[in-house]
Amino acid sequence: MASRRPDHPATAQIRLDLNGEQTTVAFAPHKTLLEVLREDLGLTGTKHGCELGECGTCTVLLDGRPVLSCLVLGVACDGAEVRTVEGMADGPRLHPLQETFADLGAAQCGYCTPGFLLASKALLAANARPSRDEIKEALAGNLCRCTGYLKIYEAVELAAAKMRGDEAEPSEETLYGRP
């Protein structure tokens, strides 16, 4: 035991479509996708809150589905398509969800934000006009301690409208409270 170096066994290597880029990465084979992204690929936009799949902070899109990257083995991702918060913007243009999260204060401390953005992105890909209840259900695995979620719902609704091409502005109540 005394000479064991647990993080230096043989390395694993996988190929990923990472945010649209073909990427090869080598890492210790017992690492989770979360650890590989943060530590071996330098993508620290994906955060961790509980390490046990209980909070949604580490959400990324794996082949289009939002998953808990703290419970995904890196070695199991060979050939997969992975989308993280770093890949949401289109070059210098923010994704509509990023725009509305910024505009409406849906990101307070910002720590849970990447997870919420990706879960929301998956929702809007499947449902262009989600109801408030559908948004709540889709985001039910993501905890936020700052916002009380309300500004997040409003941001998702506004982004959905913009993505549909609707003329959409936040309501007065969203910006100023009820008169």
Partner: peptide, 12 residues
């Protein structure tokens, strides 16, 4: 961060 212990991963 809580981490996994080392293991060998097989994909049949």
């Amino acid at each position: 961060m809580l981490r996994l212990p080392p293991f060998t991963y097989l994909q049949p």
